Computed example of a mutant assay.
Amino acid sequence: MADPDAAEGTKMVSRIAIVRGVPDSFCDALSMTPPPQPVDLERARLQHAVYVDVLKDLVQEVIELPADNKYPDCPFIEDTAVVIGNRALITHPGAASRQGEEEAIREALKQLRIHISEVEPPGLIDGGDVLYASGMLFAGNSSRTNVAGIESLQKAFPDVRVHTIRVGEGLHLKSAISSISPKILAVEDSPAAIAMFDEIQQKTDGHFKMVKTLGPGAANTVLVGDAVICSATLGLGSLKLEAHYKQHARHVIPVDISEFHKVDGGLTCLSLLIER
């Protein structure tokens, strides 16, 4: 019997990425702990532009939405929707100051003729807590995502199994666990992240392999086809981290988003990827 994950990697897939610009207010973005150095706004914009250019080499189209100064965190567009194929759940972000960011995303997805579902009250959910891997959804029950939000996720994607994973530490599930291939997950080498991976394994009968990655945030990667975008500044350092991931991924692209790391941002946060 053919491996469905292998088939997924070979079939033709149309890929679109949606990104959002960096507002003048970005220095006021939320952070669990104040950064040791303040955010450099112009450097953040330059880093964002490089990230977008990398995406343009990997997908058919990049849709760039304008920044909104009312929402300092608006570049972290991943948190505003979960998209699988032609269906999307518009989220209700867990941080009150971010509620409203999703309006621009809703309109962009409507233009793409994507069927939209909404989170039902009192649901809260951030896209950063949702990992889609091997045809399954893993939803982090965190400070930003509650049980009602996860129930809305299951209703939006009724034919996809949703596994709830407890996020004991950190901001989001994907802050510490992400995909580097259909069956391999990058996992931060910390007790909290290992515990989350163990829960994933328990709920999937050991479906995944794990690649441990040193350094908080270094396990947050973007998988686009057979290419993995990884941090150029976290964990082992860019060259060692690139070599680390190259043992398991065909193409590895380090990108520096150090200004976004200062406010708890990761690589996945900065784009909403659509494959159909």
Rank of each mutant, 00 (worst) to 15 (best):
L173E: 06
L173G: 10
K174H: 14
S175T: 15
S175I: 12
A176G: 13
A176M: 15
I177R: 05
I177T: 14
S178R: 05
S178M: 07
S179V: 10
S179W: 00
S179Q: 15
S181W: 07
S181E: 09
S181I: 12
S181A: 15
P182E: 12
P182Q: 08
P182G: 07
K183T: 13
L185Y: 09
L185G: 03
V187Q: 05
E188L: 00
D189V: 06
D189S: 13
S190N: 06
S190G: 10
P191T: 11
P191F: 10
P191N: 05
P191Q: 07
A193V: 14
I194K: 09
I194N: 07
I194A: 13
A195L: 04
A195K: 14
A195T: 13
M196F: 11
M196T: 08
M196E: 04
M196Y: 10
M196K: 04
M196G: 11
F197W: 11
F197D: 01
F197G: 11
F197M: 05
D198T: 14
D198V: 10
E199D: 13
E199T: 11
E199I: 00
E199F: 02
I200T: 02
I200K: 06
I200L: 12
Q201A: 09
Q201R: 03
Q202D: 02
K203A: 11
K203V: 11
K203C: 05
T204H: 05
T204R: 00
D205S: 09
D205N: 12
D205P: 00
G206T: 07
G206P: 01
G206I: 04
H207M: 14
F208E: 02
F208A: 10
K209C: 13
M210I: 10
M210D: 03
M210Q: 10
M210R: 15
V211E: 10
V211A: 13
K212C: 14
K212G: 07
K212P: 12
K212L: 15
T213M: 15
T213C: 13
T213A: 15
T213V: 15
L214P: 03
G215D: 01
G215H: 04
P216D: 02
P216R: 07
G217N: 08
G217Y: 08
G217R: 09
G217Q: 06
A218M: 04
A218E: 03
A219P: 09
A219D: 03
A219M: 06
A219W: 10
N220M: 03
N220H: 02
T221H: 00
V222A: 09
V222H: 08
L223A: 04
V224R: 03
V224Y: 00
V224I: 15
G225K: 02
G225N: 03
G225R: 04
D226E: 13
A227L: 09
A227G: 06
V228L: 04
V228N: 07
V228G: 06
V228K: 08
I229L: 15
